[in-house]
Amino acid sequence: MDSAGDRKAVGARFIAPAPLRMDIFLQQLINGLVLGSVYALVALGYTMVYGILELINFAHGEITMIGAMVSLAVISALVGTGVDMPGVLIALTGVLTAVPVCMALGYGIERVAYRPLRHAPRLAPLITAIGVSIVLQNGAMLIWGRQYIPFPPILPTGAHDIGGATISDVQIFIVMLSMSLMAALMLLVQKTKLGRAMRATAQSPQVASLMGVNVNNVISATFMLGSALAAVAGVMVSAYYGLAHYYMGFLLGLKAFSAAVLGGIGNLAGAMLGGLLLGVIESLGAGYIGDLTGGFLGSHYQDVFAFFVLILVLVFRPSGLLGERVVDRA
């Protein structure tokens, strides 16, 4: 990511643009898919909660951050004691600690901050969500400090060559784990009793309760599932970038939210598609923005693409790619 160098090189090519190099394109695509599968995991949490409560849980990004922080604390502690464990196992221990912590956190947030406002005007829980998000950020800052926390170099550093592009072991692992988690979630939602109750509640909480569904429990379960996915995503992000920070959940959350809107908020398949697409758009955008603007803008504009996409979707297709109608509750 040597953007100054990039820009010079691009500037020189401005007059006669170089042909598209397949290996670079492929590399951007791989990076995009890896990032996208993390966005997809986080986007699922937004979309599940929205599907049932029509609430944008803006604290969801912070849960990702807490997941990263908790797992890093465990991993660093384990590495610090010099315990003789393979790195992957240490990382796994970190994930397995972060998941229940985040599930409890998601459950608690719903109980304390959203449930009392269930029948309040929609603006009230939205403001509360932002409040919860600020509380979590500051809480994390008090516990873990303001500095960037490095992810210890415990993971395998192997890399593989695909058509001139490189894919690392960590990247492969992130994509495979994300895909399995998403498949598991789809199975749960489509095939289990809890999943049926979730879908029924999303369509009509009143009628679901007439079937004997305890709607409050379904809502709690939804928050916990979303938080579990967010925890895993948080660990993935910190392992991928090699660091964690108390503020990392903010941007990640907003991007995942954009991904959920892109796919059609409330739609699970949409969140996955939106996440992957957004990752790819962002990666290709950052990779080629220099070429496209003749070196005027560089790859550090990466973060702009998510919001550019969000605005485009909201203007031209507010229901998202796979969303049916914006409001479909009678």
């Binding site: 009509s204 009628v207 309760s209």
Partner: peptide, 23 residues
């Protein structure tokens, strides 16, 4: 609460049917 009443064996077919259209 409604779900406990339903579990006692009392079933309401609501006005407008209330079917789950997307299932």
């Amino acid at each position: 609460p409604a779900h406990l009443i339903a579990r006692c064996g009392l079933a309401l077919v609501p006005e407008g049917r209330g079917i789950f259209g997307r299932m």
